[in-house]
Simulated scan of single mutants.
Amino acid sequence: MLVELVKVAKFPWSTWLAQVRTPFGGTAVRWCGDQAAKPGRYHVEWTVDEDIAWGWNAKPAVGVGPGVRPGGHCVVLRGRLYLTVDGAAVLDFDGSQILLDLADPLPDGVAGTWGELFLEREKIALYPYGL
């Protein structure tokens, strides 16, 4: 996914964080690229480092379409949820696929619907890559 990197910063209590913008919102998340990265456009892969539990850190979406926004102490990612053949899940995030580990199976009828993930910013990572 192509994002606009606003800045990369580190605070004493956190990992390196990137302030990013997308066409459907922006937030700050863990940055796994060059710590001296300059502002600009970067292709990134999103990863989630937390088990997803429906009703706890995953819920039906408020609205439709992809989205990313700060949510108090967390970051909210909105996309379509799909199941993989091996029992994991994928969040389709504007064409980018984010592989998710599930704490428990998704309830019946959730696959294919819009969902929102509520995750700590350090549990979402961006890995820049070149094309």
Rank of each mutant, 00 (worst) to 15 (best):
M1F: 09
L2C: 04
V3E: 03
V3N: 03
L5G: 01
V6M: 02
V8C: 04
V8F: 06
A9N: 02
K10Y: 13
K10I: 14
F11I: 06
W13K: 06
S14N: 07
S14I: 07
L17P: 10
Q19M: 07
V20I: 14
V20W: 00
R21D: 13
G25D: 12
A28V: 12
A28I: 11
V29Y: 07
R30F: 06
W31G: 05
D34H: 03
Q35C: 02
A36C: 03
A36D: 12
A37N: 09
K38H: 04
P39I: 00
G40E: 02
Y42G: 03
H43P: 08
H43N: 07
E45S: 03
W46F: 15
T47L: 05
T47R: 14
D49W: 04
E50C: 08
E50H: 09
D51C: 00
I52L: 04
A53D: 14
W54M: 08
G55L: 03
G55S: 00
N57S: 04
K59V: 14
G67F: 11
V68M: 11
P70F: 05
H73C: 02
C74E: 14
V75A: 02
V75Y: 00
V76W: 15
V76M: 10
L77C: 02
R80N: 10
Y82F: 13
V85L: 09
V85Y: 04
D86M: 04
A89G: 13
V90L: 08
L91C: 08
D92C: 00
G95V: 10
S96V: 10
S96T: 11
L102G: 03
L102P: 13
A103N: 13
L106H: 05
G109F: 12
G109N: 02
A111D: 11
A111V: 05
G112D: 09
T113C: 01
W114S: 07
F118L: 11
L119Y: 15
L119R: 06
E120M: 11
E122G: 08
K123W: 14
A125L: 04
Y127F: 15
Y129A: 03
